[in-house]
């Protein structure tokens, strides 16, 4: 969302311009316009129907669900006004899940940004083998999250997992534990896995942005005797800032609706230690049959994310405008 998205529909190229150029064919231009309108409507109809039935309609339904108490069976559920919202505000489990969400968003956004940027800078400066590096650093992102969860579960396994083995190997045996079973570490263990995939995403995007960094500016800075850190801060970062903010927005917004990886690795446990709003919404709706309550939670996730989306979008637009002016 946000970012490069639509702004305004692209003005139609043909039509009027053609009429001006060829005044003699004004009649056929009207025919053309009619034919274009007909084809246009025909081409968008299937798209519109599918979107209306499977997206707009359930969305409207969601808006209705939050004001009733639907249990999944009752055809005419009782109207309860804002009770779902007031209950949600007083539910300690919601706040616990929200807290986990916040941790997830903060750590799960900053860590991949740093790691992904570092990877991208490294790969950017070498030529040989860059195809292999790109492949290796990007591939975690294309994998299905379930598979990722399964394998990382083994890495975190208490007795024979590679993490504990590695810790023992370097003499940190006292830190070994069942990473996913321990309420103190479970959330961070799952986060570690998420960072692995999200860093891959940041990497590929930042790398493509680095390709557009002005080479002349880099050379000039080098001639001025700057060191590589100065060039990073004063030359590279400002130029990739809009893209960097875009990645930040996406990772951050993804943090609000995180579900798959937590659901697979811990299911929200142990004892709710890794529950986030998404997993709590799911279990409310589909395990406790509190359909309306779950829907309300899911809606809250979206609503919470909106201000961040708007803010980041504004910041990013301002930056890219500045970039153009400079």
């Amino acid at each position: 969302m946000t970012t490069a998205a639509p702004q305004t529909p692209v003005p139609p190229a043909p039509g009027p311009a053609r009429g001006q150029g060829r005044p003699t064919q004004a009649g056929s231009s009207a025919v053309t316009r009619k034919a274009q309108a007909r084809l246009g409507m025909l081409l968008v109809t299937p798209l519109m129907v599918l979107t209306a039935v499977f997206l707009v309609f359930p969305m409207a339904n969601a808006a209705y669900y939050v004001f009733v108490d639907f249990n999944g069976i009752d055809p005419s559920p009782p109207w309860i006004g804002l009770s779902n919202f007031t209950e949600l505000a007083q539910d300690p489990d919601v706040w616990a899940a929200f807290k986990n969400n916040v941790i997830w968003i903060v750590v799960g956004t900053t860590a991949p940004l740093v790691v992904g940027l570092a990877f991208a800078l490294l790969v950017w400066t070498v030529h040989r083998g860059s195809r292999w590096y790109r492949l290796a650093f990007f591939f975690p992102y294309v994998l299905p999250q379930v598979a990722v969860g399964v394998v990382w579960g083994w890495i975190y396994e208490p007795s024979r997992g590679w993490l504990n083995r590695a810790l023992e190997f370097v003499g940190l045996g006292s830190f070994t534990r069942g990473w996913l079973g321990d309420p103190d570490t479970a959330l961070y263990a799952v986060l570690g896995t998420a960072v692995w995939t999200a860093a891959a995403f940041v990497f590929i995007i930042v790398l493509s942005a680095l390709r557009n960094v002005d080479a002349d500016l880099m050379d000039a800075a080098r001639l001025d005797g700057t060191n590589s850190f100065q060039r990073l801060v004063y030359v590279i970062i400002p130029q990739i800032m809009p893209v960097f903010l875009m990645v930040t927005t996406i990772t951050l917004l993804g943090g609000f609706s995180v579900f798959d990886i937590i659901f697979v690795m811990t299911g929200g446990g142990p004892a709710g230690a890794t529950d986030v709003l998404g997993t709590y919404a799911y279990s409310s709706a589909f395990q406790l049959n509190r359909i309306s309550y779950g829907t309300t939670l899911a809606l809250i996730i979206t609503v919470l994310a909106i201000p961040f989306a708007v803010m980041m979008n504004r910041l990013q637009r301002r930056l890219s405008l500045q970039g153009m002016g400079a």
Partner: peptide, 25 residues
Amino acid sequence: RLPFPGRGIAFYVVVVGLLVPFFTY
């Protein structure tokens, strides 16, 4: 490339589809 009546509204629906996460509905 094709001007057709209702394009504005239709496009708006597409934008909504792009912005609203699956989670919501």
